Amino acid sequence: MLAAVLYGQEHLQLEEVADPTPEPGEVVIRVGAATTCGTDLKVWRRGGHARMLKPPTLFGHEAAGQIVAIGAGVTGWQVGDRVVANNSAPCMTCFFCQKQEYSLCTDLSFNNGTFAEYLKIPAQIVKHNLYPIPEGLPDAIAAMTEPLACVLHGAARSNVKPGDRVVVLGDGAIGLMFAGELVRLGAEVFLFGGNEQRLQIGEQFGVAKTFNHHQQTDIPGTVKSFTEGWGADVVVEATGSPAVWEMAIASARPGATVNLFGGCPRDTTITVSTEQLHYCELTLKGVFHSTPHYVRSALELLASRSLPFELLISDHQPLKNLEQVFFDMRDRKVVKVAMIPA
């Protein structure tokens, strides 16, 4: 089969590799659509990921498709079932899983290789994070279950209450998903980004106001200008930049929650004012990944069609164009692209 293999920093090749065969407990799906992701872009640009993969490796982690082979011992599934598989599953037995803190599992089973004709799903994911696609939901939309699950997890950890003024920093797919979910939770959302087309998508998700950061010299000052000088009730950082992490903290009111969601490059640090943190009673949260509960919730939300997630799919492209798609993502010409094996 044709598959994408990541070898290092901006070094991606399409190669012919052996078709996968399921071991006991596993299934193999024919990929219907694999969506590109900001995490994939960061991994491609940085040449690796601290937790999820180490080159050389099959690449991509968002996909939906149809089961074509089933390993021994698998029950409840049939060849022909349309499914979406999360890119990981917790072990359910470690210290953190016993505390139901599944995103901190010490033995998360990650799976990569969605940019291919076929994808093998490990037994742990089959057992805990494989779901049927609701009838009528296109593969490209269902494939966004994984990033949306992370967003739902992040939103739930953000202490958002109806009527809160929430600032989202970042207009990538994750920032836009956050904006839509936070609006759904009853917040008044203010979205900061650097791309007018993406900010317009944010408006269609219902945000109260958008701001182009290229036209803002002082983002924390701007936030205070529409919050009576206090700052936002909740700030969500969705860029993965240490400088923006610090900006998020500076944009928060006393008593606020700051969700530092975007994953920064390894070994980076930020500076935090101990005076502000202590006397303003700030809550700073790093939120990582998702849990099976939020994977199920994400698929249900996508199937409800209550938010226009289809706006995040900028294009559909054949797998052979994958490298060019990543250059287009780097240049912010597209949000997400559905890669179609052909």
Score class of each variant (00 low, 15 high):
L2K: 12
A3I: 10
V5A: 10
L6T: 11
Q9E: 15
E10Y: 10
L12K: 04
E15T: 14
T21S: 12
T21V: 15
R30L: 08
A34R: 09
T36A: 09
G38P: 07
L41G: 00
G47N: 02
G48Y: 05
G48C: 05
A50S: 13
R51Y: 15
T57M: 05
H61V: 02
I70R: 07
G71K: 13
A72Q: 15
G76I: 07
R82F: 00
V83N: 01
N86G: 01
P90D: 09
C91Q: 04
M92E: 08
M92D: 01
C94R: 12
Q100T: 06
D107C: 02
S109N: 04
S109D: 05
F110L: 13
N111L: 10
N112I: 10
G113L: 04
A116K: 04
E117H: 09
E117Q: 06
K120C: 02
K120M: 14
I125E: 03
K127Y: 07
K127R: 11
H128D: 13
H128I: 05
N129W: 02
N129Q: 13
E135A: 15
P138C: 01
P138N: 12
A140F: 05
A142W: 02
T145E: 14
P147E: 12
P147F: 10
A149G: 07
A149N: 13
C150T: 13
H153A: 08
A155Y: 08
A156K: 15
S158P: 06
N159R: 15
K161I: 01
P162L: 12
D164V: 11
V167P: 04
G172S: 01
A173G: 03
I174Q: 06
M177Q: 06
M177P: 04
G186F: 07
G193L: 04
N195V: 14
E196S: 14
L199V: 14
G202V: 13
G202N: 11
F205V: 06
F205Q: 02
G206F: 07
A208T: 13
I219A: 08
G221D: 07
G221E: 10
G221L: 01
V223A: 03
K224N: 09
K224W: 10
S225V: 06
F226I: 13
G231Y: 11
D233P: 11
G240C: 00
S241V: 15
P242D: 08
A243R: 09
V244E: 08
W245C: 05
W245V: 06
M247I: 09
A248S: 15
A252S: 09
R253H: 10
A256T: 01
A256V: 01
F261W: 11
G262K: 13
I270P: 01
I270R: 09
S273G: 06
T274D: 07
K285A: 07
K285E: 05
V287N: 11
P292C: 12
R296V: 09
E300I: 12
L302E: 02
L302R: 09
A303F: 08
A303S: 15
A303W: 10
L311N: 04
L311A: 03
L312T: 06
I313W: 02
S314T: 10
L322A: 03
E323T: 14
Q324P: 00
F326G: 00
F327T: 13
K333H: 15
K333A: 04
V335C: 15
V335M: 12
V335G: 08
K336H: 11
A342D: 08
